[in-house]
Design a protein around this nucleic acid. Structure first.
Length: 611
RNA sequence: GCCGGCGUAGCUCAAUGGUAGAGCAACCGCCUUGUAAGUGGUAGGUUAUGGGUUCGAUUCCCAUCGUCGGCUCCA
C-alpha cells in the first residue's frame, strides 16, 4: 500500500480521492468566458490609453484580472467607463481568432509591448509559459485576435464575443500588483472583474460579496465589541475585549479538555529565549527576517519567540526518554510574535502577535502512521465542534532542497496520504511544496459562504530532532532518534476567531456566545422578578443580562437582537404571576411562555449539544 | 515594504478655502410599555499627527502614523 502511494506521489498522478476541481474549471466554458472578458477589457483600456502597456490577464476563481502599465492611476469612474465600453465591444460580435506565429513575428507584432516581449523571450527559451510560469515543455507561440486587440495568449477562448453575456460582467476594483509578483520589478495596475454566464449568477455573486462585506470580522467585531487594535499599542496587535475574551475562554476551555482527554500534556513556555537557542534551532539562519530585534539582558541577547518548537524540544530533552514513554504529545497555546510587513496586516486574520494552538508529538518510527491518523482525526473532530463540516486537504511533499534521508520522507508522505485516503478527505498534492524539514498536510475548512480558510497544519520535522539531538532509549538499549510532528489545529486563536466571526456572522452558537440570555421586563414593576430569574440562571452557569432601562420592550428586543443574544426572555404581568418567562429566539422564533426551569433545561441542553 | 484610496463626535456619515453638522449611542427628564427604534432636553470635536502655502486650511501641498483594496508572504 505504502509503496503504491509513494509511487503515486513521485509520479504526481492525481488519482483516487484527489480532487481535480482546478482542471475541471480550466476546461470549462466559464473559464473561457472569463479569460475572453479579460481580453475585451484590455481592448477597452488600450482604446483609452493607446500608449498603455499590457502585461498578463488570466481568469481566476470567480473572475479575471488584467495588469496594465498606464500613464496615470485609474479611478472608480474609469472602471465604469471601461465597463461600458466593454459592453459595446461585446455587442460587436467579434471572433476570437487563434494564430500560431514564429518568435520573430511575435516580437514584431508586440514590438511596443515590453512585457509581451519579455514573455515571448520566455516562451522562446522554452522555460516559461505565457503567464511567465516555469514549464518543462516548449509551447508553440500563439496569439489571439478579437476586435482590434491582439494578445499573446495560449487560450482557450470563446469563439465569439457574443458568447460573453454583457449583462453578466462587472469590474470590481483596481489594485497595485508587481510585474510577475516581484517587488523589485515595476508596479502595475491590476483591474479585477467578474464574469458569469447569466445575469442571475452575477447577481448571486455580487450578493455573496455583499454578504461577505456584512459579516467582515472587523465590522462585526466592532458592532459586538469583540476586539480592537489601537494606534498607540501598535499595528497587528490585538486587544481582546470582554466579549471576545469570553469566546476565547470558551474555545480554550474546550480545547484544553479535549487535549487532556486525548493524551496530551499541557505545557507552558516563555515568551523569549537566548540567541543561542535560536541558533541551535536554526531560526536565526532561516527565519530571522520574521523575528524582532534582540533584547539585551546582562550582555546576553534574547529574542521574542516566533515559534514554540525549541522550547518544546527542551521539555522533551529535560529527561531521558524510553521507547515506552512514546508517543509524547506536548500542547501549548503559545503566543508568538512575527514581523509582518505593514501592508499585509489584516484584522484578526494576519497579525504580528498571535497565539498558536500548538503541539509537538514525539514518536517512534513504527508509531508514526498511527500518530498521523490520530492527529488528523483529532483535528477534524475539533473543527467539527466549532461548526465546520467541509474540509479540503493539501499535501505538500519533498522539495529539492531538504534535510532528512529519502526513506524518512517517503514513509512520512505515505503515512500522510494514507490517512487522507482512509478518512475520505478530498486532497490535492503540492509536489515539492513541503518545507525543507518535512512534508505536511494543511487542512482548509469551508465556511458558511463556501470560502476556504486554512486552519490546521500537520508538519513533519526531520530537522529539529537532529539539531537538538533528541533521542530515546529503544528496546535494544540503544539511543534512537524520535520522529517529530508539529501541529496546530485551529491555527491561531486570532485567525480562528476571525473565521468563526465570519462563519456565524456574529451569531455564535449558544455555548460560545459571550452573552447568552437577555431578560426583558416589560415595565418597571417586572424588574425585580427579572433580576430574581437572572440570579437563578446565572447560578446554573448561564451568561445573563437584564435590560432594566426605561426603553420600551420593542426597543429592548431590537437591542438584544442586534447584540445577537441567542435567547431573549420577555417578562410581563402574566409571566410574573405564573413564575414563567416568554422565550424569543435570535432567529425570530417565538416559543412563548414556559417555566423558568423548562427554559433552563432547554438552554443547558442546547449548550451541551453545542448548537 | 510597494501602488492606489481613505482618516471629521463613542459609532455611521454631512459640510469643501471664510473659524464644523445630523442620526444613533451617552447623560438628565417624561412615558410604564406584550415581540426589531415612545418622547423632550443636555453634553460631546486642537477635523489622525507634524510641517508648509494662504489674510484665512477640515478643505490645497509635503511628511509621519493608522486604515482599506491588492502585490508578496503566511497561523
Amino acid at each position: 500500500m505504502q509503496r503504491a502511494l509513494s509511487k503515486n506521489l513521485t509520479n504526481n498522478r492525481h488519482g483516487g480521492r484527489m480532487s481535480n476541481k482546478k482542471e475541471d474549471y480550466k476546461s470549462s466554458q466559464l473559464y473561457r468566458i472569463r479569460h475572453s472578458t479579460a481580453h475585451v477589457m484590455a481592448e477597452a483600456v488600450l482604446e483609452m490609453f493607446p500608449d498603455g502597456q499590457v502585461a498578463i490577464g488570466p481568469a481566476i476563481d470567480d473572475g479575471f484580472y488584467y495588469d496594465f502599465d498606464l500613464p496615470r492611476s485609474l479611478t472608480p469612474d474609469d472602471l465604469e467607463t471601461i465597463e461600458n465600453r466593454m459592453k459595446e465591444l461585446i455587442k460587436a460580435k467579434s471572433d476570437f481568432v487563434c494564430e500560431e506565429v514564429s518568435a520573430e513575428d511575435a516580437k514584431d507584432l508586440f514590438k511596443d509591448q515590453v512585457y509581451k516581449l519579455e514573455l515571448i523571450e520566455g516562451l522562446e527559451s522554452g522555460n516559461l509559459d505565457d503567464d511567465g510560469n516555469p514549464t518543462d515543455e516548449k509551447a508553440p507561440i500563439t496569439i489571439y485576435r478579437s476586435g482590434k486587440f491582439v494578445d499573446l495568449c495560449r487560450g482557450p477562448h470563446v469563439e465569439n464575443t457574443s458568447q460573453i453575456n454583457g449583462q453578466a460582467i462587472k469590474l470590481l476594483n483596481v489594485a497595485g500588483a508587481y510585474w510577475r509578483g516581484d517587488e523589485h520589478r515595476p508596479m502595475l495596475q491590476r483591474i479585477y472583474g467578474t464574469a458569469w454566464e447569466s445575469k442571475d449568477e452575477l447577481k448571486d455573486h455580487l450578493w455573496k460579496l455583499e454578504e461577505a462585506r456584512k459579516r467582515d470580522h472587523r465590522k462585526v467585531g466592532k458592532e459586538l465589541d469583540l476586539f480592537s487594535s489601537n494606534d498607540e499599542v501598535g499595528q497587528g496587535l490585538i486587544l481582546w475585549h470582554p466579549n471576545g475574551g469570553m469566546i476565547r475562554h470558551q474555545i480554550e476551555r474546550y480545547w484544553d479538555d479535549q487535549h487532556i482527554a486525548n493524551g496530551y500534556d499541557l505545557i507552558y513556555t516563555p515568551h523569549m529565549g537566548k540567541a543561542s537557542l535560536w541558533e541551535t534551532s536554526g531560526h536565526l539562519g532561516f527565519y530571522k527576517e520574521n523575528m524582532y530585534s534582540p533584547i539585551q539582558i546582562e550582555d546576553q541577547e534574547y529574542y521574542i519567540k516566533p515559534m514554540n518548537c525549541p522550547f518544546h524540544l527542551h521539555v522533551y530533552k529535560s529527561q531521558l526518554r524510553s521507547y515506552r514513554d512514546l508517543p509524547l504529545r506536548f500542547a501549548e497555546k503559545g503566543t508568538v510574535y512575527r514581523y509582518e510587513r505593514s501592508g499585509v496586516l489584516h484584522g484578526l486574520m494576519r497579525v504580528r502577535g498571535f497565539t498558536q494552538d500548538d503541539a509537538h508529538h514525539f514518536c517512534r518510527p513504527d508509531q508514526m502512521p498511527d500518530e498521523i491518523d490520530f492527529t488528523l482525526n483529532f483535528s477534524i473532530d475539533m473543527l467539527r465542534a466549532f461548526g465546520f463540516n467541509e474540509f479540503q486537504a493539501y499535501l505538500s511533499t519533498k522539495p529539492e532542497k531538504s534535510v532528512g534521508d529519502e526513506k524518512m520522507w517517503r514513509d512520512a508522505e505515505a503515512a500522510l496520504e494514507d490517512t487522507l485516503i482512509r478518512m475520505g478527505i478530498p486532497y490535492e498534492v503540492d509536489a515539492g511544496g513541503g518545507a525543507f524539514y518535512g512534508p505536511k498536510i494543511d487542512l482548509k475548512i469551508k465556511d458558511a459562504l463556501g470560502r476556504e480558510w486554512q486552519l490546521s497544519t500537520i508538519q513533519f520535522d526531520f530537522n529539529l530532532p537532529e539539531r537538538f539531538d533528541l533521542s530515546y532509549i529503544g528496546e535494544d538499549g540503544k539511543e534512537h532518534r524520535p520522529y517529530m510532528v508539529h501541529r496546530a489545529l485551529l491555527g491561531s486563536m486570532e485567525r480562528f476567531f476571525g473565521v468563526l466571526i465570519e462563519h456565524y456572522a456574529g451569531a455564535f452558537p449558544v455555548w460560545l456566545s459571550p452573552k447568552q440570555v437577555m431578560l426583558i421586563p416589560i415595565a418597571d414593576r417586572h424588574n425585580s422578578y427579572a433580576h430574581e430569574v437572572a440570579a437563578k440562571l446565572k447560578k446554573a452557569g448561564l451568561r445573563v443580562s437584564v435590560d432594566d432601562s426605561s426603553d420600551r420592550m420593542n426597543a429592548k428586543i431590537r437591542n438584544a437582537q442586534k447584540q445577537k443574544y441567542p435567547y431573549m426572555l420577555v417578562i410581563g404581568d402574566r409571566e410574573m404571576e405564573e413564575g414563567q418567562v416568554a422565550l424569543r429566539r435570535r432567529s425570530g422564533e417565538n416559543p412563548g411562555a414556559m417555566s423558568v426551569d423548562a427554559f433552563l433545561a432547554l438552554a443547558l441542553d442546547e449548550i451541551a449539544q453545542k448548537i
